[in-house]
Amino acid sequence: NQASVVANQLIPINTALTLVMMRSEVVTPVGIPAEDIPRLVSMQVNRAVPLGTTLMPDMVRGYA
């Protein structure tokens, strides 16, 4: 089972991601792999991401 990136807090739209906003968790469906967390830092979300939501590739500008 692969860990995915999950929002550690509410992340408002257009917010640049920081390490404290994300955690890794084994979830279904699988989202962005946890090993990509360092790559996600400073990328912006293109929608509001509620606490506990799995980050999907289409939620992060420039990721996919």
Rank of each mutant, 00 (worst) to 15 (best):
A64N: 10
T28I: 07
V30H: 14
R23N: 05
P33A: 13
V26M: 14
M56Q: 10
A3D: 10
L10W: 09
Q2T: 10
S24L: 07
G62C: 15
T28G: 09
L10T: 13
G52I: 02
P57G: 11
V41C: 05
Q44V: 11
T53F: 14
T53A: 13
V6W: 02
M59F: 15
V26T: 13
N8E: 13
D58I: 06
P12E: 08
V6M: 08
I11R: 01
P12R: 11
M43Q: 08
Q44Y: 14
L51T: 12
E25G: 08
R39W: 09
A7C: 05
M22R: 00
V30L: 14
Q9K: 08
S24P: 08
P29I: 08
S4D: 01
L51Y: 12
I13D: 13
Y63G: 04
A34K: 05
N1Y: 14
V5I: 15
V49D: 01
T15V: 09
I13Y: 15
I11F: 01
N1P: 15
G62S: 07
I32E: 00
S4I: 01
M56P: 01
M43A: 08
V49H: 02
M21Q: 04
Q44T: 12
R47T: 11
D58T: 10
L51N: 06
T15Q: 11
V45N: 03
M59Q: 05
I11K: 00
I13N: 13
R61F: 08
N46V: 14
V20C: 15
I37T: 09
L55V: 07
P12S: 14
L55C: 02
V60F: 04
N14T: 04
A3R: 05
R23H: 05
V41Y: 07
M22E: 00
R47A: 11
V41K: 06
G52S: 15
A3E: 15
T54L: 05
M21H: 12
Q9N: 09
T28D: 15
Y63V: 03
M21I: 03
P12Q: 12
R47W: 11
V41W: 04
V6S: 03
M56F: 09
N8K: 09
R39T: 08
A16K: 05
G62R: 05
L17H: 00
T54F: 02
V6Q: 05
V30I: 10
V27A: 09
P38R: 06
V20W: 15
P38I: 14
L40H: 00
Q2P: 14
V20K: 14
E35G: 06
R47Y: 13
M21Y: 07
P33S: 08
I37H: 03
G62A: 08
V27F: 02
P57L: 05
M22T: 02
Q9G: 05
P57C: 13
V45S: 06
N46Q: 09
V60S: 01
N8L: 07
P12Y: 08
P33L: 12
Q44F: 14
I32S: 01
S42N: 14
G52F: 06
A3M: 13
V60R: 00
A7W: 02
P38Y: 08
L55F: 12
A16E: 05
P29W: 04
S4N: 01
A34E: 14
E35T: 10
D36M: 08
A48R: 10
I32P: 00
V5S: 03
V60I: 12
P29G: 04
M59I: 06
R23K: 07
E35Q: 10
R61P: 13
M43S: 05
E25R: 05
L19G: 05
A3H: 11
I37A: 09
V41R: 09
I13P: 09
A64L: 09
S42P: 02
E25A: 10
V5T: 07
V41H: 06
N8I: 07
Y63W: 14
L10V: 10
G52L: 05
M22Y: 02
V20Q: 10
Y63T: 03
D36Q: 10
V45W: 00
R47F: 09
T28V: 10
T15L: 06
G52A: 10
A34S: 15
N8F: 08
S42V: 03
V60N: 01
V45K: 01
Q9H: 12
Q2H: 08
L17C: 02
P50C: 14
T53H: 14
T54D: 01
N46H: 07
V6N: 01
P12G: 08
D36V: 08
P33M: 12
Q2S: 08
A34P: 08
Q2W: 09
T18H: 04
D36A: 09
G31P: 00
Q9T: 15
T15N: 05
L10F: 12
I32R: 01
L40M: 09
D36F: 08
V5A: 10
R61K: 11
G31I: 01
Q44G: 04
E35R: 05
V5K: 01
I13M: 12
V30W: 11
D36E: 13
V45A: 10
T53G: 06
A64K: 13
L55D: 02
M22Q: 00
R61D: 06
I13C: 08
I13V: 12
T53W: 13
P57M: 10
L17P: 02
A64W: 03
S4P: 00
S24V: 12
V6T: 11
G52K: 04
E25N: 06
V41L: 14
D58A: 12
G52Q: 04
P33H: 10
N1M: 15
V30G: 09
I11L: 13
E25I: 05
N8H: 13
L40Q: 00
A7V: 14
Y63P: 04
N1V: 15
A34L: 04
L40P: 00
R39L: 11
P29N: 07
D58H: 08
P12A: 11
I13F: 12
P33C: 06
M56H: 10
L19V: 04
V6I: 10
A7L: 03
S42C: 15
P33R: 08
N1G: 14
P33V: 13
V60Q: 00
Y63L: 07
P57R: 07
N14K: 09
R47E: 10
L17V: 04
M21K: 03
N14W: 10
A48M: 15
D58Q: 07
I37E: 03
A64S: 12
A64R: 06
R47I: 06
A16I: 09
M21S: 04
A34D: 15
S4R: 02
A3K: 05
S42A: 15
I37Q: 04
N46G: 10
M56D: 05
S4M: 02
N46C: 09
P29E: 13
V26E: 15
N14H: 08
Q44P: 08
L17W: 02
M22D: 01
T18L: 06
P50S: 09
V41A: 06
R23G: 05
M43D: 03
P29L: 08
I11G: 00
P57D: 07
Y63K: 03
